[in-house]
Amino acid sequence: MTAAPADLFIDRPAPADGAALWRLAKDSKTLDLNSSYSYLLWCRDFAGTSAVARDEDGRPVGFVTGYVRPERPRTLLVWQVAVDPAHRGRGIAAALLDGLTARLAAERGITGVETTITPGNTASERLFSSFAARHGADLTREVLFPADLFPDGPHDPEVLHRIGPLTRIPAH
């Protein structure tokens, strides 16, 4: 499991974090930016399946949002991962993902992770490939949503990355 840098701690998000998560997503320049309202709701309704990295002053500097799939209750779908540009390259995204999956394995018995990544997003490809390797899991890919399904203009396809079963999950 990847440990968070010593000057940060990983926590569950709260509604008061919604604006900061929206800004982190906006500043990522790669994520589809949702409405600020959706981040407020996410921090309220899906805090249990999400995580935030906080600096020494308690400010969010990274997050991972996710939910447990209703049809696959042992699978975490990771919606978004973002880290403040000033804090990138420190292993924060990996620590968030490892910490969240360890917590959800203990609390909900998850054994798999899914996410979608657009072609060319090499940072996300590396994050999830290394996650699969750390956890002794297979990684498969298939197009989940082809580009022509998106009604709001040009959009790359979303490729589903399915990781599991997770065989090495440290205790949370």
Rank of each mutant, 00 (worst) to 15 (best):
G62A: 13
P119H: 12
V78R: 01
V143W: 09
H161M: 12
A20H: 01
A6C: 07
L160Y: 02
T111G: 11
P70M: 02
A132Y: 03
L104Q: 08
D32N: 14
R23I: 05
P5F: 00
D57K: 13
T118F: 04
D55H: 06
A94K: 12
T116K: 06
L77N: 02
R141F: 10
D148E: 14
E71K: 15
I163L: 07
P151L: 11
T115A: 15
P119G: 15
V52P: 06
E56L: 13
K29P: 04
I10L: 03
G164A: 08
I10R: 02
E142V: 03
A14G: 06
D138S: 11
W42V: 13
A25H: 10
D7R: 12
I110V: 07
F145L: 10
E158K: 08
E107L: 07
L24A: 11
P5D: 03
G109P: 07
E125A: 14
D138A: 08
S124L: 04
L40T: 12
D55P: 04
R141Y: 07
S130M: 03
T167V: 05
L24M: 10
R72G: 10
A16D: 09
L104S: 06
G58V: 00
A94N: 09
A133T: 13
G18N: 05
V64W: 02
R134N: 12
F63C: 10
V78Q: 06
P165H: 14
P73V: 04
D32W: 13
I169Y: 12
P70A: 11
L77I: 03
E56Q: 13
R23A: 11
